Computed example of a mutant assay.
Amino acid sequence: MTDLTTPGAYLEAMRAEAPLVHCITNYVAMNIAANSLLAAGASPAMVHAAEEAGEFASFAAALTINIGTLSPDWVEGMTAAARGAREAGVPWVFDPVAHFATAYRRQATEALMALRPDIVRGNASEILALAGGQSTAKGVDARDPVHAAEEAARRLAGERDTIVAVTGETDFVTDGVRALRISGGSPLMPKVTALGCSLTCMIGAYAGVKGADLFDATAAALAYFAVAGARAEAAAEGPGSFSVHFLDQLALVDGAALDAANRMEVA
């Protein structure tokens, strides 16, 4: 087994294993999320029907659930998948998109959080609200800076026994004890729809590596996106070309380049 001591080692191990990542994500994100995982070297599967989601999650390397576009049938599939993953010991990642916006989203989020996600990824507004704090956001976009959600993330991670990743201009990840900030990326990233959703799926790919420490795996996935984003911006003329270059960079960045970028600092 690869010695998983650096983000680059995680990237190389993920590519060698090509983990099957069961992604339940929103309509907007399906294409870019699948393409991001393929470019990185993972194997995506978009399976959401309740009739098969639980069984499928039980043999995937990781499960990711994103509540961006909810419906009763999809919630049933998400619940079945989370239960299947939990029972099989498969790590699962939860992306509580705009969970505070409506009563239906709040109810779905409460039910899924009760199934104990291993990792929660959201923007600062989502994490603040999930931890019981006050957020200025009303929809899917973050209105709060990442630093404003750091203490809430630490508290949420400790209370829920999970890894919490807050993503934005500078990412923050904590397990309630350890914490890191990851810099990089590009201001063009929020101008391309569903890159945050794709990052949730990428965290699943890293979490699915055999022998992964889920805190380190999450940080490594964040660093990978940050490096790919910075490199894509250097070649892009705007959001459209950035999207293309970003997928290219997900394929082109290797373990040595990821480690050389040194995007992490202890928080």
Rank of each mutant, 00 (worst) to 15 (best):
T174F: 04
A16D: 13
E17H: 08
V173N: 07
A80P: 00
I119Y: 14
H99W: 14
F94D: 04
D216N: 06
P190F: 12
G132N: 01
A236Y: 02
D213W: 08
P44L: 09
I203V: 15
N26G: 14
R121F: 04
A13H: 01
E55M: 11
A149N: 02
E51A: 08
G133L: 10
A256P: 03
F94V: 05
T170C: 09
Y104F: 14
E52I: 05
Y27V: 03
G196T: 11
G208W: 15
A111E: 11
M46R: 14
R106W: 03
A179T: 12
D248L: 07
A49E: 01
T102D: 01
K210N: 15
P44H: 09
T25L: 08
P19M: 12
A267V: 06
C201T: 13
I24G: 02
V164T: 10
A221Q: 02
A50Y: 13
D73M: 14
G77K: 10
F59H: 15
A18W: 02
S186E: 03
A153M: 01
F225M: 13
A235Q: 08
A18G: 03
S198M: 03
A142E: 05
E159N: 11
R15F: 05
D259C: 06
A45H: 12
G77R: 07
L37T: 06
D254A: 06
V97S: 00
